[in-house]
Design a protein around this nucleic acid. Structure first.
Length: 374
RNA sequence: GCGAAAUUGGUGAAGUGGUUAACACGCCGGAUUGUGGCUCCGGUAUGCAUGGGUUCGAUUCCCAUAUUUCGCC
């Protein structure tokens, strides 16, 4: 079967909503956060550990797996789930984001047929099209595939964004035509920067094609302001159907997760928890902390007293700082466990808040602690 | 005991008779949002062993002292 979204509760005071996603690998509650496993691995963590943290869907990347090991290898292995030993749902990004960041000359390299770009591994000239991206994702056998979209920088002009919205619609249609995996859902992507009319047009036209779910793209890709990010969400959400999942691509930061939920987003993904972990930083309810800081040298308390993750239950800040400053790989691993669990737990808390119609209070309480750095 | 060389920040070190003493590492901070993992950006010697002297001016030249290293007895 294909993935199905079920809306169970609409929060009274905001657009926040509580629902469930039914997949071939179980049912999961939303709003939810997906950890990123670009190359068929959430860096340094095993599938069992992800399950223990109560992760649901994880994200893998079409571009990276296309280059290595190659989608035909994954297909021979029996699909992504078998290949990476993950018996939970997997969403694949279309490769759009990587491809556009690798295309040097936007005007020249992006054409109607597809995108020319250079492999980041060996510099080979490559060409990816809407059809190719979907075929690769069919072969990978992920549970949710993404349409191939153009992901322009937030700083792009109105005229550029308008063109890119139009092209993304045509690519979505082409991808839908060749999509051929009965077990795989396919999402359309809304673009249009921070312009209300473009977002509306993009959303309305994309929804007409009747996808299994809808993504809001083009955010968090060019250091755009939070205001613009929130506008992109606010201008898109009203035109998306109630009974389909909404996925905000590439977000986020704890504060952005709350803002996204309040604006009606169901699914998020972000590299932040694992990336900052590898760089020695961790989320806490009192703000982000940096283990390079000397003040943790003799701090023999847990990262967070009341966190239920493996790291917090077994290790001290002094030890974590030692691992980080000596560049030991266990450090990044332990912090990744905590950071992912932190965001997953935030989503649990927000689901409860939505059920009780108190998501705005939750935001108040969270921000008060998170922004007052100790 | 005699002779020679050396002495620059936490470390390894570059350098010059004349504005803010290079660089690297370390250290101290910060960043990071559909991941080109191990990255990027800041800060970090008011002083060049100590005391004299020469000079308009010395970390740079001279003398003494101290310490270190090497060689000889």
């Amino acid at each position: 079967m294909k993935m199905k979204y079920e809306l169970l509760k609409q929060e009274k005071n905001t657009k926040a909503r509580y629902g469930k996603i039914h997949t071939n690998y179980g049912t999961y509650e939303t709003p939810m956060f997906m950890p990123v496993g670009t190359k068929a691995t959430v860096k340094s963590l095993t599938p069992e550990e992800l399950k223990e943290m109560n992760c649901g869907i994880i994200l893998a990347n079409t571009y990276h797996l296309w280059l290595r090991p190659g989608s035909e290898i994954v297909k021979k292995a029996g699909g992504l789930h078998a290949f990476m030993h993950y018996n939970g749902p997997i969403l694949t990004d279309s490769g759009g984001f990587q491809v556009f960041s690798l295309a040097k000359n936007k005007e020249k390299d992006i054409e109607e047929e597809g995108v020319h770009f250079k492999s980041h591994i060996d510099g080979n000239s490559l060409f990816l099209t809407a059809e190719k991206s979907i075929q690769i994702q069919n072969d990978l056998d992920s549970d949710i595939a993404m349409s191939f979209d153009e992901c322009p920088p937030a700083s792009a002009s109105y005229a550029y964004l308008k063109n890119s919205v139009e092209r993304t619609l045509r690519w979505a249609e082409r991808g839908k035509q060749v999509h051929n995996n009965p077990n795989q859902a396919l999402f359309g992507i809304v673009q249009g920067g921070a312009y209300e009319d473009l977002r509306k047009y993009s959303a309305v036209e994309t929804v007409k094609m009747d996808f299994d779910g809808y993504s809001i793209g083009g955010v968090a890709n060019d250091g755009e302001s939070k205001e613009d990010m929130y506008k992109a969400i606010d201008y898109s959400i009203p035109y998306l159907p109630e009974d389909k999942a909404r996925y905000l691509m590439g977000i986020g930061d704890p504060i952005d997760l709350i803002e996204g939920v309040i604006r009606g987003v169901d699914i998020f993904d972000c590299v932040l928890p694992t990336r900052i972990a590898r760089h020695g930083q961790a989320f806490t309810k009192n703000g982000k902390i940096n283990f390079h800081n000397a003040k943790y040298k003799e701090d023999f308390t847990p990262l967070e007293e009341d966190c239920d993750c493996y790291t917090c239950k077994n290790y001290t800040k002094a030890y974590l700082r030692h691992l980080i400053t000596t560049d030991e790989m266990l450090g990044g691993r332990l912090l990744s466990i905590h950071n992912i669990r932190f965001l997953v737990r935030m989503m649990e808390q927000m689901r409860n808040a939505i059920k009780e119609d108190r998501i705005l209070e939750y935001r108040e309480e969270f921000l008060e602690k998170y922004q007052s750095k100790k």
